[in-house]
Amino acid sequence: MSRPRITSHDVARRAGVSRTTVSLVLSGSGRVALSPETRKRVMRAAEDLGYKPNSAARMLVSGNSETIGLVVSDPSILLVDAFIPQILYGIERANREMGFHVLVEGLGAEERPGAYDHLVESRRIDGLIVLNPRVGDEALVSLIEKGFPLVLVGSVRHKDEVSVTFTTRAAIGAAVEHVVALGHRRIGAVTFSPRGYTSRDARLAALGAAMVGHDLHLDEDAITDGNFSAESGHRAATTLLERRPDLTAVFAGNDTIAIGVLSAARALGRRVPEDLSVVGFDDLPFAPWLTPALTTIRTDGVRQGTIAAEMLFARLGHAALHPPRVRLEPELVLRRSTGPAPD
């Protein structure tokens, strides 16, 4: 005769608490303040009865939370950057398949020193994925050097980091070759963020290097910084085009910024692509539907997020990673926002 299935009602009766309290304790919820004694009583009752509901049960046996922390280096990005949801989807899907949960934290490292340590030491998470890290983030470097299971979506250029990023030189080089072939010689850039973000600086460096290869120079006054949002792209592009009205092509740091560049061009009476060619980066789902359809560099944020999660699972399972730093190759997608340079 089979043994009756143990339920949360049985645990509640054994611990002398409500079924809701059992659910809150076993799910690890911090929404309701429960005394340490109550939590211990519920955990002991569940263990004595052999009650093992999904991940809560595995946590009892393994001591792991089966939760990963997902840290966004600047929480304001979540409001405005359309690429981040692509990465989040890939991470969440991979975690769901593995039976893990994702704890999302917004982090301004300069405003919240020790926030990484708080996440780690609280034992709420088994590992971390950090999106868009800043070079020079000492707290993050410290975690890397301690060997904590950590994967970067981006890079801090540390020799021991585990990371997944996109290469930039080949695709940006192809984009520069494309606009130069169209006759453009005066080229500017609106970055997607202030200085200090690795991908921002890498894209700008690749643009400058590609231009040098065509005997051109990316002038300092032909560069303005956006701040993740389309609105900031509009402001930055307006400043740039008023300062340098001779520019005939602008590289936007990403497609969200490109929306702002297109808007600024319209406001200043600059037709795209007749007067100004615009190139984006990411090829987000809206890019083909902009007016005009956006020439851009295609990346795959879902794949990047999925790979980051799989790399973290490998680290949690103490599996070797070959290579520990994955570089994905983007490609140029030609649409109608680029055209021949005006006479």
Rank of each mutant, 00 (worst) to 15 (best):
E138K: 13
D221N: 13
Y197M: 11
G147H: 12
G188L: 02
M211R: 09
E220W: 02
A230K: 14
F228R: 13
S229V: 12
G196N: 12
E242I: 12
L182W: 03
V151E: 07
A210P: 06
A205W: 02
G196K: 08
G213W: 12
G183Q: 02
V164E: 03
V164Q: 05
L241F: 04
A236R: 09
L204I: 12
I223H: 02
H158C: 08
H178D: 04
S229D: 14
L218S: 07
T238I: 05
H217C: 05
S155Q: 03
A139T: 07
D246P: 01
R195D: 09
R244S: 06
L150R: 06
G196S: 06
L152W: 04
L152T: 03
S155G: 02
A175T: 01
P194Q: 12
S155I: 05
A210W: 06
R185L: 03
R195M: 04
L140Y: 11
D201P: 05
L218G: 04
T239L: 13
A181D: 11
V151Q: 08
T238G: 15
R235P: 02
E177T: 11
L216I: 01
L204G: 06
E231T: 14
T165P: 00
V141I: 15
H158Y: 08
T239E: 15
R185T: 14
P245K: 08
E145I: 12
L143F: 05
S232H: 14
